Simulated scan of single mutants.
Amino acid sequence: LTDKLLRITGGLPQKIRMLVEVLPEDIDFLVRARLVELNAGSLAVLQLAQLFGRPIAPGALAVLAKVPRSDIEELVMQGFLALDNSGAAARLTVAESYQPHPMLVVADKKTRQKMHGACAAHLQTLQSMDLDESLHEPITMHLLGADRVDQAASHALQAGRWLAKNAALHRSESILTHILDASPSQTQELRLALVDTHVALGQFDRAIELCRGLSSEEEQGIQLRLARIHSLGGDLEAAQKALEILWNQPSMSQAQRELVGVELADVLLRRGDLDKATELCLDALPNSSSDYALAFNHVLGKVAFWRGQWDEAHARYEQVLSDLTQSNAMVDRGDVLHNIGLVSLRQGRYSKACEQIQNGL
C-alpha cells in the first residue's frame, strides 16, 4: 500500500495528505460492498467472531456458528478472517480491515443475547478444562450480554479476585462496577469486593462511602472493615474510635473480639499510646487462641522495641517465630524476621541484622 501511494502521488507530501484525507470514505464503501456480497450465513459467522471478542479456534467458531469447517476456511481465504499465531495453536479473528464495522454488529437483541450465551458456554467449557482463571472476565461480559445477570455476578467475583491478584486493579474495579450497575441479587458480596478493590487502589474515601451504604445485617464486620480502611488511610483517630466501639460490644464472639483486639493494639501502637497497647495485649493474652496470642506477642515486641528495650523485644519476636506455623494468617514470618533484624541493628550486630532482614524478604 505504501509503494502504491508513493507511486500515485510521486512521493509529494501534499498529494499524499490529500489522498489520505479522502480514503476513509472510499475504504468504508469498499468494505461495505464486500460484506454486502456475503450470504447471511457467512455474515453471521463474522458477526459471531466479532462479538466473541478474542481469537478463537477455527473448529470452535464452526461449532458455535453451526456451519461446516469449510465455510470458515473459505472466509479465511477471502481475507475476512485472519489467523492469529500469537499462541501455541492457530486462532482466528475478524481481519483488521473489517473491524469494527457497523455491519458486523448484531442489531436484533434476541439474536445478540443468544450469541453471547453461546460464547459464554464455550468459554465456560474451556475454563473448566484448563482452569484458566483469566477467562472469568470475558465469561462475565458474555453472560451479562445474554442478560443472565446473577450468573454473570458469580463470575465477576472470581474475575475481580483474579484481576486484583494479577495487579489489574482498574480492570477489577471496572468489571465489579459494571456488574453492580446491572442490579444482581449478590449486591452485598459484590460491593464488599469493590470496597477491597478501592482500598487496594488507595481510594480510601470511595471505599468508606461504599462501605457505609452496605447492609446492616453484618454490622460488626462492616465496622471492622471501616476501621481498617481508616487505619490504612492514615486516619488513626477514626480507626481507634471505631475499634473501641467494637471492643466494648458484649455481643461479639470470642474470635471477633480477638481480631478487633489485635487491630486496636496495632492502632494504639502506631498512635504512640504504648501503655494502653501493652495493657490491652496483656489483658487479652490469657484467653486468646494460639494464633491471636502470637499476634498480641508480636505487638508487645514492637512496644518493647519503641521503648528501647532491645532484649525484651528480641525475646518476644523469637518466641513468636518459634511458635509460628505456616497456617497462621495473623502474623507474617517475613515481618517477624525483619523486626528481629531491626533489633540486631540497634544492638550493633550489623552482619546479623543484614542476614535477618534479608531472610525476611
Rank of each mutant, 00 (worst) to 15 (best):
K66T: 04
H155A: 08
R307H: 11
A62K: 08
A60H: 11
V343P: 00
H122V: 05
R34F: 00
C119A: 14
P68I: 07
T177A: 13
E318D: 13
L268S: 08
R69D: 08
L210Q: 06
A118K: 01
Q254P: 06
D71C: 10
E258S: 10
P58C: 11
A167C: 06
C281Q: 11
K4G: 10
N287D: 08
H170P: 04
D28A: 15
V320F: 02
V267G: 03
F29H: 13
D273H: 11
M103C: 06
D291R: 08
L300C: 09
L342R: 04
N248G: 14
L169G: 08
E96K: 11
L135Q: 09
S174Q: 15
E355V: 06
Q240C: 12
L46H: 05
L64H: 05
E37G: 07
L321D: 00
R34K: 14
E21D: 14
L135V: 07
Q127C: 14
S344E: 12
K4D: 14
N297W: 01
P55N: 03
V20L: 15
R257P: 04
L38H: 10
A167T: 05
A107W: 01
S215C: 10
A44M: 08
N339F: 00
R271G: 11
S253D: 10
L194D: 12
I208Q: 11
P184A: 01
A329K: 15
G117C: 00
F29T: 10
E279S: 13
N85T: 07
A207S: 05
G59A: 03
Y98D: 07
Q358L: 12
A95K: 01
D71W: 10
S183G: 04
W247A: 15
L43N: 08
G160P: 07
L64T: 04
L19P: 05
T197F: 00
Q99A: 14
F29K: 14
D181T: 02
G308P: 02
M115V: 05
L268Q: 14
I340G: 07
P250G: 07
Q358K: 15
L280F: 09
V106C: 13
M103Y: 01
R349E: 13
G53S: 06
L126S: 04
L269A: 06
V105P: 01
A293P: 01
L285Q: 09
V63R: 15
E96F: 02
K4P: 03
G79N: 10
L104R: 03
L163E: 09
I16G: 02
L35W: 02
A239E: 03
K109Q: 12
W162H: 15
R191S: 14
G202N: 01
A255L: 12
L259P: 00
S253F: 02
K302D: 13
R34T: 06
V67Y: 09
A168N: 13
L264A: 10
D235S: 15
A353I: 05
F204W: 08
V76N: 04
A182L: 03
S327W: 03
I16F: 03
L5M: 11
L30I: 09
H155C: 02
Q113V: 02
V262L: 11
K165R: 15
L75W: 01
R148W: 02
Q223L: 13
Q99I: 07
L104H: 03
R17P: 04
A167P: 00
Q249C: 13
L176A: 13
L226P: 04
Q186V: 00
L264W: 02
E218F: 08
Q124S: 12
S70D: 08
